[in-house]
Amino acid sequence: MTRTIPLAALLAASLAAPAFAQGETLTVYTYSSFSGEFGPGEAIKAAFEAECGCTLAYVETEDAGTLLARLLLEGDGTNADIVLGLDTNLMAGAAASGLFAPLSADLSALDLPVAWTDDMFVPFDWGWFAFVYDSNVLAEPPASFAELVSDPDGPTLIIEDPRTSTPGLGLLMWVKEVFGDGAADAWAALAPRIVTVTRGWSEAYGLFLEGEADMVLSYTTSPAYHVAVEDETRYRAAIFAEGHQMQVEVAAMVAGSDQPELARQFLAFIATDAFQATIPEGNWMYPVTALADGLPPAFTDLPVPETSFLTDPDTVAANRRAWIDEWLAAMTR
């Protein structure tokens, strides 16, 4: 038992280090891979602190889902000034909570494939969902979603569960956008080739890299990681003729923030190069503005879908339950 005391002291010391503040503190709630070692969070913190003369403190949760749950549990008494990391699928629920402040940020610099009009949430990065494959294993990936669905001997897939993960929910919306009322039949046709449905993206992508399936639901930007970090070009994203579903990640200011000025300053900072330049090789997503130096080389070579879908947050909120039930029925048909 005595052994834990020095350990605890060491732990306390390691925690205490960042607590030295200069002036005001802006508290940003985000998910841990954003603020973590490999995410863009540290660079953003340094850049913003230099600009504002304040301290930026991250409070992390496991993922976007817990982020919203924690904020709602804290309610009006939350310590958060900014919440960063919700996506469009969670927006409706977040907006309905009344915890966020409307704002009139200048969104003119935004450079998204779709128009952005929300007056509460500011996008900070985005990407297209796509099926990623190993070109050494799968020489000719399907050219369209219809082709993927219709070929009974087509590639095997690993997907994420829409009940537990945002990519899974994104895929559900994507299939709905492409197949409309035929979505259930499309799922039934895909079901025999779906190897498994994981809890989250990490398990799915990991199993894919272990060689468990021909394709995995990820992002068109995933291959850029393998090129930039591993110098490995075998992984590619299949581009479907019908178009691709988008994921847009957003930030917003908490209405009860005791640092409203800093919070507004931070939301404006999101659309600057200092923030956006960290996104491609930090979060492996696209920046929401055109970068002064352009995208990193690994991104410029990526194929780009011609059509983009982004399901309206209210539509998602209204139909999520019914669509998941439809999906469950079709998958277990």
């Binding site: 009940r163 537990t164 079901a191 190897v195 498994t196 449905v197 809890r199 398990e203 999906w327 998958m331």
Partner: peptide
């Protein structure tokens, strides 16, 4: 979920 093979 990971080894279940489907939402069943």
């Amino acid at each position: 979920l990971a080894l279940g093979g489907g939402p069943g």
